[in-house]
Design a protein around this nucleic acid. Structure first.
Lengths: 246, 246
DNA sequence: CAGTGGTCTAGACCACTCG
DNA sequence: GAGTGGTCTAGACCACTGT
């Protein structure tokens, strides 16, 4: 059963979506909401903090909260899994395996997965499709910890993330590096675009609740297939702009 | 004066940075920290919530928090301003104005800035440089609300965001759309790259604390100049992957 | 089982916004 | 100055982790 504050957050989200609290208008005060839901002010604050986090309402000390609007909410799981994302948007996801191998970790792989050079890693390359159309080239690396599970999976079925979760390897954190690259000759052929065509590259590390790296992946998307959306604010900032060159 | 919980968060961040709490080890319990800092458990929870938000520590019910590591923290202001970002990284930012004009808002501009078609907008195009090297083409649009201020500014001095902030127009929220595009002939010439070369495009809306749009900008970076970093987690997700085509 | 984080309460005072 | 959000306290009980 979800916590009371989460229920309240959900009800408020719903109310905003249905126009009960219109965009640009003020949310009731914390005291009013506490009375309405018969909870303490602390619980109300937890609830509205969720909406502030989403960027759905804005808070300023001394004034009532402003409704910013409904935001396209994406669960963490949808962001971590190509298959879940595709399915939730009404597309049929697919995967074609190009290669799978077990090997000794090279320096970069060891750094990314926080293991030692020479430790086992599984390397996997796949083409990912949306409705049978190729949209992304995926190069993934997994630490020895999950190697046997990866090798035992049906890698064309789609979501490795979901299968790992079912085995108890929960993805709790993600760290993403996003840039633009030119399609190599191979990538161009696989994706059906011209060589040198722009690709949106998303390199990311998934970690367990204890911070243990579970997977590193380099995903290169056709530029016409995907747009990444990030929201931030003075109170919640997880976004940074890095120099590509030292 | 900063709140007590912010001071504590800062001290903990510092302690992690200096290796007092090593990566992978456990943070002291909330009770211990409360005693150590002579505050209530609630205040300690506010402090560690800040670190969890940053992705610097991970929490799991029933177990002590795990130290994930120091994270490259970027203030919200640095993300919103090219100049502040460049300066904080030791580069010299520059700007060259290509054009400035006031006009009647077209449909798309009106939608982005939440104004009416035909209302005043300021359109500004600039080349942004790092150490005198062109790295980004910027196309910005401002609503009538701030038009007179924009026109009165020295637009080659760099940060419009900072100048607007000084005038009381605080940027409190950001909403970013990130994708990859091909350089047009004009962009290629301005940036010194080949036509068709990949650019990392970041389109974003900045809003005031009340949700009032203050600026919309389309920034196209040379692909070798910038990488965007985003962190998310099960408890804090502001990241979404959108389809480029409906 | 003991320890620990997650949720909730009731009350207090302060800082800020706005009419 | 009244209203409202921001901070902090002290205490309670529950849910989960690990030994």
């Amino acid at each position: 059963m979800a916590a009371r504050y989460q229920q309240i957050a959900q009800e408020l989200r719903e109310a905003i979506r249905q126009g009960e609290y219109a965009i640009g208008t003020l949310l009731p005060s914390e005291g009013d909401l506490a009375a309405r839901y018969a909870v303490s002010r602390g619980t109300v604050r937890q609830a509205v903090a969720v909406l502030e986090q989403d960027g759905s309402v804005a808070a300023r000390q001394g004034a009532r909260r402003v409704v910013l609007g409904e935001v396209p909410t994406h669960s963490f799981a949808e962001m971590q899994s190509f298959s879940m994302w595709a399915t939730s948007r009404g597309h049929v996801p697919g995967a074609k395996v190009l290669s799978v191998e077990v090997g000794a970790a090279r320096q970069e792989e060891a750094d990314r997965l926080r293991i030692n050079v020479g430790d086992d890693v599984v390397r996997l390359q796949r083409i990912r499709t949306l409705d049978d159309e190729p949209v992304m080239v995926e190069r993934s690396f997994f630490p020895g910890l999950v190697a046997e599970h990866i090798l035992a999976m049906d890698l064309t079925a789609g979501s490795i993330t979901e299968q790992l979760t079912a085995l108890g390897f929960v993805h709790a954190h993600g760290d993403h590096l996003i840039d633009a690259v030119s399609a190599t000759t191979l990538e161009a052929r696989l994706l059906g675009v011209r060589r040198g065509s722009p690709l949106l590259r998303q390199r990311w590390l998934a970690s367990s609740p204890t911070g243990q790296p579970l997977a590193w992946s380099e995903d290169s998307y056709r530029h016409d297939a995907v747009i990444i959306n990030v929201r931030n604010s003075m109170s919640a900032n997880t976004l940074a702009r890095l120099s590509a060159r030292s």
